[in-house]
């Protein structure tokens, strides 16, 4: 569903990762690991289509991808249900109610999102991913500020998504409690010996 061949990504004109290859099939999850600043976020943003890759080939159907970033895009003045319904409408799906139940947000439905705790807000952010109905989930540190029970809840949601033929690419440090392939991106960090890509980035000036 999603393959990367020799992909290189850059941030602010500086190469971050080079030579990253992986492939993600239906029903599988791939966990990205690596220390802070290794380039996980940059890679995920490139996969999500927010920034161009600077080398290699990235194949995916863009309309299959749902991207979940560090921040949830939750509007504090809207209620939980309004937040979720909005994104479901944007993606043209009718899964808002299911997503709300899956992330156990039903008791909070009419609460303003501004009054939620950090963990509840995160659950709302994850429910948004569920509500998109997209096949490939691209998630950046989805479990930040979640408690153990919520992590298990999220793990179960991902598992259900995989069982239904979906796929997930997740950057995380913790064990999510389902079978997944692991890709450590540390070896792909771009160094001074990274081959120069002609004319594309600041290397053109060297």
């Amino acid at each position: 569903m999603l393959t990367a061949q020799n992909v290189a990504v850059a941030r602010a004109g500086v190469m971050v990762l080079a030579g990253v290859s992986f492939s993600l099939n239906a029903g599988r999850a791939l966990i990205l690991r690596g220390p802070n600043g290794a380039g996980k976020t940059t890679l995920l943003r490139a996969v999500a289509g927010l920034q161009p890759i600077s080398g290699g080939i990235l194949t995916a159907v863009e309309d299959d991808i749902a991207y979940g970033a560090h921040s949830d895009g939750v509007k504090p003045t809207l209620t939980v249900a309004e937040n979720l319904n909005f994104w479901a409408q944007i993606y043209g799906s009718d899964l808002a109610a299911d997503a709300m139940t899956a992330m156990q947000l039903d008791p909070l439905a009419t609460r303003r999102a501004g009054q939620l705790s950090a963990g509840q807000k995160r659950r709302l952010g994850l429910a948004r991913i569920l509500a998109t109905g997209r096949k490939i989930w691209v998630l950046d540190e989805p479990t930040v500020s979640l408690d153990t029970a919520s992590v298990a809840l999220f793990g179960a949601a991902v598992q259900a998504h995989l069982n239904a033929g979906g796929a997930a690419l997740i950057a995380t440090h913790i064990d999510l409690g389902f079978a997944a392939d692991v890709l450590d991106i540390t070896p792909f960090r771009a160094g001074a010996d990274t081959p120069v890509l002609s004319g594309q980035f600041d290397e053109a000036f060297l």
Partner: peptide, 10 residues
């Protein structure tokens, strides 16, 4: 700038 950032990487 490109040289400096390369130096930082090395």
């Amino acid at each position: 700038a490109a040289l400096l950032s390369r130096e930082r990487l090395a």
